[in-house]
Structure formats: C-alpha cells, structure tokens
Amino acid sequence: MADPILDIRGLSRSFGALKATDDVSLDLRAGEIHALIGPNGAGKSTLIKQISGEIAPDAGEVRLRGRSLAGVDAAGRARLGMARSFQVSSVAPEFTVLQNVVLSAQGASGASFRFFRPVMRDAGLLGTAHDCIAQAGLSGREAVPAAELAHGERRKLEIAMALALRPALFLLDEPMAGMGTEGATALGDLLDGLRHRAPILLVEHDMDAVFRLSDRVSVLVYGRVVATGTPDEIRADPEVQRVYLGEEA
C-alpha cells in the first residue's frame, strides 16, 4: 500500500491533569475520507489543532508525506497544503466572499509582501478564487460580506477557502455542525467528491453522514483512539457500541 499522506504517531497533549490527547496514532491515505468521531470533550478539536500546528503536542509527531512537521508553525503547514476549517466558522467577516477566497489563494501563492498592484485585479488569484467559489456552491454570492452570510453559506465559504489553498489534505472540524439536514446532505455530497482532490480528516457528529461518507472511522474517547476500521467494522465493534454509539441511542 502507498505511504499515507498524513501520518500521526503517538501524539499526546495534556491540559494540566487532563490528557486531552493520549498517545494517538492514525493516518490519512490518498483518496479517503477518514472520520474522527467521539463524544464531546473527547479531544477531537485538540487533535486537529496539533495537526494544523496551532498547539504543540507534548509528545509524538506529525508527518506530511513522510516529512516531519516538528518546528513548522500553522502558517507553514497551511503553505504545505494543510487546509483546515474550524468548528466555529472562522473567516474575515468584513471581507466579501470573494476577498476571503482571494486571501486564501494569496496565502497559497506565498507572496503577500507585494505593495503596488491591486490584489482584486490579480487575474491569477481571481481565477482560482472564482473556481473554488463555484466548486463550493457559492456562485452568485461573491460580493456578499462574510458577516451577512447564512450559517451554512459560511461553512461553504470555509470550504472554498480550503480549496484555494491547493490542499494536500483537508482537516475539517465539524463542517456540518448547525446546518439543516438539507444543507448537511449537500455539503456531504460536496465532500464525497473532494476526497479525490485531497484526502479528508473529518470530525463529525452526524452518524448518518459519517457512515455514508467515510472510508475509515476512528473513535476517540477520553483522548484515546479506541477503534479504527471501516464503517461496518466500527458499527459492529462491541467496545464502540458500549462507549459511544450506545450513548447516542
């Protein structure tokens, strides 16, 4: 089997006495959606932040295409193609949809210290941005300030921004949270197609979406991975049923 795109080994991170992430190992392979599920407070967001470089792990390492990311900050990891969305949408609220996505394309280009030409007339960045906006299903909303978007549209904007980063992989922290069933289904269809652009590590609460979309599922409980497998294996795992799925029922 090909080497994984993302490889996490023995990642640990404590907040005081709380082990938010406890010796977590998992990987993300080309073309797959790998779902990360677990009850609230299991440490899913904390794990994502260690992968994206926002917080440093106490132990363990993250490898991207075999290269260790120790010492690479969040901006550096984004440049390497780690495209992430936040559990609580995080965009530039006063910028329009188009400006937000252009910002992302600009970040990917690595050239922000240019002082003369108007960025909103940069044909290269605009072309990328319009493509990504269309793929995320936001065509026609380019001129709307992000603050005025509906909740679901802001989620789509985050996806468009992730696409504009020329992603090597996606880290999506509950991208469907707070969307209606219809919106969630549409976003699910979008993610379904995206996995072939770049693999997706998907934190998600909606079990129907998780079992429909993912190639593999990892279950996180109290900071530990208690099971990893195909959706069918996870559904059948008695340990998982006891500690997690059982709670939902």
Binding site: E54, A92, A111
Partner: peptide, 28 residues
C-alpha cells in the same frame, strides 16, 4: 490607498479581523 488595495493591504486588513484565519491560509 495603493497599499490598502495591494496583496499586502489585503493581508493587513485580514490581520485586523481574524489573525487565526490569516495563519490558517499560510500568512503570518
């Protein structure tokens, strides 16, 4: 005015609004 419209200006105005997001698109 020229600076504000440039790539630099876009990043600068994003820094005012949301530094976390700016990092996440690869700009310090």
């Amino acid at each position: 005015s020229m600076l504000a419209r440039s790539r630099f200006g876009l990043a600068l105005q994003a820094a005012r609004q949301n530094r976390q997001r700016l990092m996440a698109v690869g700009i310090r």
